[in-house]
Amino acid sequence: MRPRRIIEVGLPRLLAWCLLGFLFVPILVVIPVALTDRDYLSLPQDGMSTEHFAALADWGKGWLPSMLTSAGIALACAVIATALGVTFAVGAWAAGGWWPSFMRILLLSPMIVPPIIYAVGMVKLWARLSLLDSYTGVVLVHVVLALPLTVLAIGASLSNLDQRLVQAARSLGARPMTVFGKVILPNIVPGVAAGALLAFVASWDEITVTLFITGRAVVTLPRRIWTSIQDAVDPALAAIATVLLVVTVLALVARALVERRQRQQKF
């Protein structure tokens, strides 16, 4: 009985932990490479050095301007995508019917349609409108790609909202805009915040379409990383990867702590 149990329960569990290791251990390799004392991609040889992190802060090396570019574009994208997402999700929820359902499918389709196809279309369109390699062009494309996320996040919040709240407000004589602004909106704040955050991250990370609609003028952080990976020499690349890794882990830990506090408050 015992050996059988090891094969049926122990082995799959061991395999699962190995696979979890496969998921996160390879990412950690950027940390020692970022600390190398050489000026090419390698593990530290005669001691560690932080010079590659210092290079990130050097304005002339281009990493800092790209970070600011990406942050600015992501912020603009988050504001616009959230505004469009909120109005659409709330309107579709309140109106119902075939038009909102149809538009919802169209708005969500960038999640399934391969982005390379969209890139081909946008290169043509932006070339005609002279928006290639412009901030406006990048922000608008990022808004389209972020909209599915904001619509889904806000939609999730709305599906928990009680329709009777709206009926009560309307039967008491509230005007339509009052219902939307003072009854619905305050009740979906968590969804709106989640949508804005997702839109920011989507824009900050976007590379596939950005690659084709930008050139020398607008160099987002992912675009600079992409070029740098193809050269594959500069250890500053490992340093920026380490910074992104640490920020992601801190954000996830912060979220876990907030969730834990909320759980404790409930009891």
């Binding site: 469009l84 109106a95 909102p100 169209l106 960038p110 196809i117 389209v144």
Partner: peptide, 27 residues
Amino acid sequence: FKTTALLLTVPASLVAIGLYAAPILQV
């Protein structure tokens, strides 16, 4: 109320049609 709700869906719909559906249809 319903008209206002439908009007709210217009801006995002215009973006989706003009900046997503149209370029892909052009491809």
